[in-house]
Amino acid sequence: MSKVLVIAEHNGAALNPSTAKCVACAKQVEGAEIDVVVFAASASAVAAEAAQISGVGRVLTVEREENDPAIAALLAPQIAALASSYSHVFGPSTAFGKDVMPRVAALLGVNQISDIMSVEGPQRFKRPIYAGNAIVTVEAPADSVVVATVRTASYPAADGGNSATIENTNIDAELPTHTRFIEVQTGQSDRPDLQAAAKVVSGGRALGSEEKFALIYKLADKLGAAIGSSRAAVDAGYVPPETQVGQTGQIIAPDLYIAIGISGAIQHITGIKDAGTIVAINKDEEAPIFEVSDIGLVGDLFSIVPELTDALD
């Protein structure tokens, strides 16, 4: 009998969509009972959201001042303390989950399964390696807890409409003081979140400057899309790092992905291959991005993008 504990990701006020994706993955573990745990200073709003996710049996809340904002070194011992009643502990393959989950696994004396793409059995999973150039089926050792991150781009969010019970829990874990939160700087953007957006417009090095990236912003705003970018564009300083899509940036699965002036290195493709429709606009007809695109247009982005933006009125 499998029991899966899903670690909720949230910002103190709202649940991140990655949590419902982890639940979708947990539902693939045959016959699993699924609990979600919310670590927060005040958990009620986030817990109420988590309780709506279909497939969730219980939502546990652990309320401590030290849990706001989340710090991996403080969360890990609390998660590890809860883990003894579970066969699996899942978190998302986001910056949050990638930070905390390996720390949990090490405290429990196991390796982590990183980036689950599919569940093949209670201990058996598929995951990508080599920037997605290979998929490996792995088997965690029997009789030990499975600690894993879920590749969120591989799973649509589990539906809502549930009303799971919410239980407050106390965890008797001593928390370290060696790590202190100072601040977080966000892009201050009104645009949709890159991870959650249904549409993403992404620009590459061919834009040539930070100023020219305005073309990408205008098209994105017309479509209600989030902004993405290639590593080259970030390295050149055209856009902030949190926009980077690919092996070492964010892995996303929007319904529509428009790649503009992006040649399509394998490291970039690995971040978008689960997108619904990929559109590529590039002046080089040999660009590898066209090999994975559903719709391709060869030409000068500096004339095509403004024309496209106008045409979408």
């Binding site: 490996v136 050792p141 045409a311």
Partner: peptide, 27 residues
Amino acid sequence: APRTKEIKFEPPESRQRGIMVEDVAGL
């Protein structure tokens, strides 16, 4: 540490190349 077994390696499913359009109107 207890080792995660690697059972099988396979190439990823590849996306099919789609259509090319001529201009913005086609797009």
